[in-house]
């Protein structure tokens, strides 16, 4: 019985170590390296293209549809003027429901939003504002709210109003709030931050744990 090995080409380590054979091996290795390099460059290029052309991954929850943001009817600013969302068209308006005596989440959220403002380009910063709606109208006067909000950033302002107006606005923006008891009461409230796009649509909801960098990225994307 014979084996067919006689018909096979010699194994690599049996190849005669002549100059043409060494050149062929070098050429083969070069081809493998070229293919690997092409694959690596291709993957890098595809990743770059997807990052550049692909959808922006928002840190907040994006709402679809084109329904205008609920009006903040009955609420007033420090100067006594009524809040009218039409005043903010063309800008990104962040809306936050909180209160000035809030010990933790409100100042943290305001500070995060202020840091995000600092990360934006000057042009985008000019087109970004924040309105804090008080859920504690008996203690938060419009003037006090203005002092509190503008402390964090000059583009930030406050609004308050009758309880019925705040209840209505809070409900429509998905906000729950409940006043505590005692003289130094706190207020339990939903701490989401909402983003109204330049076209007046409530487009995004950020969770309380959003970072300044994520917020700035989303705002820049909303501004287009």
């Amino acid at each position: 019985m014979t084996t067919p090995t006689a018909d096979l080409p010699p194994a690599a380590d049996q190849t005669p170590n002549t100059e043409p054979n060494r050149a062929r091996r070098r050429s083969g290795r070069m081809r493998v390296l070229a293919v690997v390099a092409a694959v690596v460059v291709g993957i890098a290029f595809a990743f770059l293209a997807i990052r550049t052309v692909g959808p922006h991954l928002y840190a907040g929850t994006v709402l679809q549809g084109d329904t205008p943001a609920p009006a903040l009817e009955g609420l007033v600013r420090a100067d006594g003027s009524s809040v009218d969302l039409a005043d903010y068209e063309g800008d990104v308006l962040m809306v936050f429901f909180g209160y000035a005596n809030c010990p933790d989440v409100c100042p943290t959220t305001m500070a995060t939003a202020a840091q995000a403002m600092d990360s934006l380009s000057a042009e985008d910063r000019d087109r970004t504002r924040l309105l804090m709606v008080s859920v504690d109208p008996s203690r938060d006067t419009a003037e006090y709210l203005e002092t509190f909000t503008s402390f964090f950033h000059p583009n930030f302002s406050g609004a308050t109003g009758p309880v019925e107006a705040i209840d209505s606005a809070a409900s429509q923006y998905g906000i729950f709030y409940q006043l505590g008891e005692g003289e130094d009461y706190t207020v339990d409230h939903t701490a989401s931050l909402m983003g109204i796009a330049p076209d007046g649509v409530l487009r995004i909801v950020w969770p309380p744990e959003v970072t300044a960098e994520q917020l700035a990225g989303d705002i820049a994307e909303l501004l287009g």
Binding site: V62, L63, G65, Q172, Y173, G174, F176, T190, L202
Partner: peptide, 26 residues
């Protein structure tokens, strides 16, 4: 499923007399 709009914020009571709010459902 589309992300249509925000559900309302609310504070109601359940069948056991316990508070039930939109935050409880979060």
């Amino acid at each position: 499923l589309p992300r249509m709009r925000l559900a309302p914020g609310f504070a109601l009571t359940d069948q056991s007399g316990e508070p039930f709010s939109s935050e409880v459902a979060r």
